[in-house]
Amino acid sequence: MTTIKDVAKYANVSVATVSRVLNQKGYVSKEAEKAVTSAIEALNYKPNAIARTLYHKTSGMIGLLVPDIANPFFPELARSIEDIALKKGYTVVLCNTDSELVKEQQYVRALQQKYVDGLILATGTGSYEHYQTLDMPVVALDRFISKDIPTVVSENKNGAKAATMHLIEKGCTFIAHLRGPKGLAPADDRYEGFKEVVEAKGIAHIIVETGFHIEKAEEVVQRLLKQHPTVDGIFASSDVTAAGAMKAAHTLKREIPSEIQIVGFDGILFGDMLVPSLTTVQQPIYEMGVRSVELLVQLIEKKTLLSYWHELPTTLKLRGTTKGGSLSVKT
């Protein structure tokens, strides 16, 4: 394996000169720089990435922390982040926390030891105090941590209001809301949007907590529909829980959408693969990922941010789980 000493010998310069060329630090004459560059090409020299990381205290990597990689929303988000990060010269390290604070903190410590240049947090432990003093650029994605940390979210409350209004307009008179985890900002906002509409319109409603898990949603909705057979509409806080509701309705032989109508939230690809296809509030997933990387890179490069709050619009995607044809409506 070619070493830095081999390059120095080939270029007839000192090891220190080669190091200055590689690290772009310190004075090097044009002649010496050209000799070193030619030697690197001739010998096909590859600088030691670990050594360079230790020297610069930077790695060209960013950490992405997500709560549940099994939820299709997060792989779609990760894909957009990876796409734009690679274009900007960064490699993404994906960490699945399972929404466990201890596991999340272990990942953060490991990423710090690897000198990652910054973090994108889409994780959902609900406890963020340890990020307030973290000496590293951080962007919150689909989560709110602090007004001092740049945040990228979608219009969760407006999207929930549009979903609930759509169910009412399609004739639903008793609507259930499958609530996401309490204390998690997106889930709380969707709950608030739902409550605001049903209370203003005087619509009978019931709220049950399912988290963002398909199995729990299926179990809870089966029990719900047995206890409250007149429920004719469901607004789920995620597409995954909406899928669970669809399975429960199918098991109980409740026809969708003629007997019960369902709206999800996220707009992930698999919603279009369900039968019937899922009416949902579509988040701009790709744009959210892109925006979070752009903000993080600005922080890494010590640029001034024009805004720390980025709330992107959602779209109501009408499909087969509600009455009517297919359509996209801005919320």
Rank of each mutant, 00 (worst) to 15 (best):
A39S: 09
V240R: 02
I50C: 11
K323P: 01
S154V: 13
E209G: 05
T315I: 13
D117K: 03
L43K: 02
E76V: 10
A11S: 10
E104P: 09
V221F: 06
G183M: 08
L111E: 00
R20C: 06
D68N: 11
I120E: 01
V92S: 02
T210V: 14
T151A: 05
D68T: 01
A110P: 00
V293T: 09
G233I: 05
P276V: 03
D188N: 12
V93P: 05
I300S: 04
V102Q: 14
S14W: 05
E31A: 13
D266N: 11
M273F: 11
I4W: 06
F73K: 03
V139A: 00
F212G: 01
D272K: 15
E294C: 06
V198Y: 05
N156V: 11
M165K: 14
G126K: 10
N158Y: 13
G26W: 03
V153K: 11
R179Q: 15
E129P: 08
L141G: 05
L224N: 08
S307D: 15
K114L: 01
A242T: 14
R179G: 03
E215F: 13
P47W: 03
H310F: 02
D148I: 08
E82D: 07
K161M: 15
A70P: 07
V153Y: 11
T151N: 08
L299N: 08
P72R: 05
I203F: 00
I268S: 00
M288A: 11
I168T: 05
R79N: 05
E287T: 12
A217D: 13
P229I: 03
